Simulated assay, not measured.
Amino acid sequence: MTKRDWVMKSTVAVMLSTSLLMGGHIEQAAANTQVAVSTVDIASTAKKLVGKPYKYQANGPSSFGSANFATYVYKQAGIKIGSTISALYKTGSSVSQKNVKDGDLVFFSSNGKGSPSFMGIYIGNDQFVYSSQGEGKVVLKKFSDYDKKFVGARRVADSNSNEKPNNSESSTSSIADKVIAYGEKYLGTKYKYGSSKDTTKTFDCSSFTQRVFKEAGITLPRDSRQQSTVGKTVSKKDLKKGDLIFMKSSAKGASDRITHVAIYAGNGKILHTYGSPGVTYSKFDGTNWEKRVVKIKRVI
Rank of each mutant, 00 (worst) to 15 (best):
K190L: 12
K149G: 01
S159A: 15
D158T: 14
Y186P: 08
V138T: 05
Y182K: 15
G183D: 09
K192T: 06
N167F: 12
R225Q: 15
S131T: 06
N160T: 04
G188W: 04
K197R: 07
T202R: 00
K178Q: 11
F128E: 03
F208N: 03
K185H: 15
S173R: 14
F208W: 08
P165S: 12
E184F: 11
K192W: 00
S132Q: 03
D223S: 12
S132E: 03
P116K: 12
A181L: 07
Q133N: 11
F208E: 05
S170C: 01
G136C: 06
C205R: 00
S117C: 04
L187C: 15
Y191M: 08
I121N: 05
L187H: 14
F213N: 05
S228G: 06
Q227W: 03
Y130P: 00
S206W: 01
K149R: 14
I218V: 15
N160G: 04
A176I: 13
S173Y: 10
K164F: 13
Q127N: 13
S196H: 00
G183T: 12
G152E: 10
K214P: 06
K149T: 06
F150L: 09
L220M: 07
G194A: 01
V129Y: 09
G134F: 12
V139S: 03
N167A: 09
V138Y: 05
T200H: 08
Q133Y: 12
Y186D: 13
I180H: 12
I180K: 12
T189Q: 01
Y182A: 15
N167Y: 13
S174L: 12
S131L: 10
F143D: 07
Q227R: 02
G120P: 08
F150Y: 15
V212N: 07
F150T: 08
D145Y: 12
F203L: 11
G120K: 13
F208G: 13
I180R: 05
V156C: 12
Y146T: 13
S132H: 11
Y146Q: 14
K214V: 13
K148L: 01
Q210R: 14
D177Q: 09
S161F: 04
A181T: 13
A181Y: 07
T200Y: 00
Y186V: 09
V129N: 04
K137E: 12
G183Y: 09
S131D: 05
I121L: 08
P221N: 06
D204N: 02
A153W: 07
L140C: 08
S144K: 10
E135I: 01
D147Y: 04
Q227F: 10
C205T: 06
Y130I: 00
Y186F: 15
S170V: 14
